[in-house]
Nucleic acid binder design. Sequence first.
DNA 1: CTGAAAGCGCTTACAG
DNA 2: CTGAAAGCGCTTACAG
Lengths: 375, 375
Amino acid sequence: MRTATLQDVAKLAGVSTATASRVLSGHPATSVDARTRVAEAATELGFRPNAQARSLRKARTESIGVVVSDILNPFFAEIAHTAEQTAREAGLTIMLCNANESTEQQDRYIDLLLAHRADGIVIAPQGDGSGSLRDVLKLGVPLVFVDRTVDGVDVPSITSDNFGGIAQAVEHLVGLGHRRIGFIAGPQATSTGRDRLVAFRDAIEKHGADQDMALIYEGDFRVSSGVAGARHLLDLACPPTALLAADSLMTLGALHVCQDRAISIPDDMSIVGYDDIEAFRLLDPPITVVSHDPARTGELAVELLTKMLDGEKVESVVLDAQLVVRGSTGPASLRRDVPAPVPLETEAPPDVRGLPAPHLLAHAVHVDDVARLLS
Amino acid sequence: MRTATLQDVAKLAGVSTATASRVLSGHPATSVDARTRVAEAATELGFRPNAQARSLRKARTESIGVVVSDILNPFFAEIAHTAEQTAREAGLTIMLCNANESTEQQDRYIDLLLAHRADGIVIAPQGDGSGSLRDVLKLGVPLVFVDRTVDGVDVPSITSDNFGGIAQAVEHLVGLGHRRIGFIAGPQATSTGRDRLVAFRDAIEKHGADQDMALIYEGDFRVSSGVAGARHLLDLACPPTALLAADSLMTLGALHVCQDRAISIPDDMSIVGYDDIEAFRLLDPPITVVSHDPARTGELAVELLTKMLDGEKVESVVLDAQLVVRGSTGPASLRRDVPAPVPLETEAPPDVRGLPAPHLLAHAVHVDDVARLLS
DNA sequence: CTGAAAGCGCTTACAG
DNA sequence: CTGAAAGCGCTTACAG
């Protein structure tokens, strides 16, 4: 069955296509008579306006593109989800694209969105802003960055405080006596990958922890690189006592490695993740993470974009990131059956020697409880 | 900057729009001269064909709709991901829509896809096939069901063996001595929700386990209903010794409750989940699940659809589902000394995002340890 | 191989 | 309030 056209409706209603169009699009200048007849005809024919034809004629397509970097990453799935909700409430259609952490695929999707004349684009960008991203700007298509930005490209964005988040994580670990902290960094082709790495190095330096470059591994925000990174770091001649990963998937990868190697968390190794996902709270021990707000991020991004579409001036937003301390971080293990860490020439490591070793600590707690129970 | 049109290109190249169009769309009947001049003009102007105009003129839009029921559900995120990969390889654009487990939103998105004249639709359907789904069929738009089906609607589908999966799970639990098995079912508005429930009841009956209807709770495939379901079941006067949940999110919810109440898995309670997600392998103990293959599901669905678009005959596919036994299932507990259920009104607020109540957890652990220490 | 022309299904000044 | 007509940017028989 061919879908009915405006002409079919007009003919059945006995009016011109102009009138039919006005009725159907809610134009005020229509008679009651026309309205009822056109409405009847439309329902009878099951009329569905052709969106292609409409947007060819009109300036706007009422659709926006949302390009996430990896839909399998719960953080971006949630951004996609709230972005979609927000867009729908604003009467906008979303074309959801998954760049799959590939600049090439990102460019393909941008081309597609431009071909479809999306009114605007929300993107978690990748790369240096050459490729198709440049065309978007040249064409003046409204653009909003989410989570990430591109150096030297001035575009409104919703990001979060990567520096603060990492700084808190490192401070927490150093406070627990960790001197050698392994960092599974994100891809340096992303701003979050870069920012978190810089933040890490800054914090490490500031706190006088071990600046050994071998403690830094560049991953790609996927589980497999978390696995590779953790293996690399654990296999170092002088391995770290704590691991910090720059996103949730790499954190999961690192946890897999610890599980495989029967490394006890936090007794043998402290773990800090980035991005709080459901499962982190359920793990035993639950994972200490740097948490920020993907739901709010996706929502704000679309709100920013709709404002831009309406010609309003907008400001970038930097959301909070904060450390949520759970059970996966503990005092740096003293019973390291590995070579002792190289002492720093500058300052002595914080004195954790006054504290009981973790297994003793755990024991002590039990003894306390036994005492309490028996009393 | 206005984006260049075919006419601009034609004018600059000194040819007709017809010739320009032929060159740009790779039509063979073009001279070398025309080809080079049009190509040059196109790149110089940064020409991007208007997809709306093209598909208005052509029969096909080269785009398909993919409607998943919840993009936050890792199972559907993976279906979306592979569907997108497969479509891209076939030169098709995907419009990804998130029905958010709502029939109303599903219908909105179907309307949208029809308005945009999608060539075909892949959908994880909901409801009874009234609403917009009926229009899709009436219009003859190629349709493929993924994961779910609709009763009485004859549409090619990629599903998995719900009956076999549930049967294996129940058999496993019964084999471990469980007689009272709690089931957190999926929404009965979905075929998977219904099929898994029927399969559960069949298996329970077959194995002579307890058919108490109070052991069945209808959830909605989301975390929060897993929480509610687990609480309901654990609060029964005679609670189950094992819990089976019909999807991964409700399983996570049930796990949250066990964690909050310091219920030891599998000693106090065996848990079987449905859909294998990354985190299930990392939990301690790792979760026994019914596993099927979302990646293959998404891939096959798009392959089926592209065949239909090419006018080929297609057959539905039922993929395997199999039980993966891990540590979360064990012998039915004989020492049913689980603390009496806390009355609902005094229970911790139902905030699954909050931290588990550590004192509860600590208490149970200590009791165990005390027992061990004293023995 | 090429161009003039029709047309895809709408919307919207323009004139009444 | 209404209709005739132009036009959005393409593609494609049709005739040459």
